[in-house]
Amino acid sequence: MSSMNASDAPHYVAARVQRAIAEDARTNELGIKVDVRGNQIFLQGQVFEEEQRAHLTEVATEAAPGLTVHNEVTCVQVGEPGEEELL
């Protein structure tokens, strides 16, 4: 008997966090990559507003209590339209 519950395997924790991020109304982000390494969670991807970044940490922390969340998500930088492409 392992002391660790099978549903706490990193694989399932990552899936749970990813699902929470997609389905929680605070985030509804589908493209965030979630990696669990030991007791740490790494979030990667892009969002559109700084506020969304903070919500990601919040939702991930709630979905995996006790683990440390490292939020490496960046905000999309939008530049000038740029030159046209002739098709």
């Binding site: 530049g79 339209p81 030159e83 046209e84 492409e85 098709l87």
Partner: peptide
Amino acid sequence: IRVRNVALPVLGRAYAIYSLA
């Protein structure tokens, strides 16, 4: 047929411009 994915994070710019000859 030419295909363009113009998702804002892919473009990184306000919009793309394609000229149809």
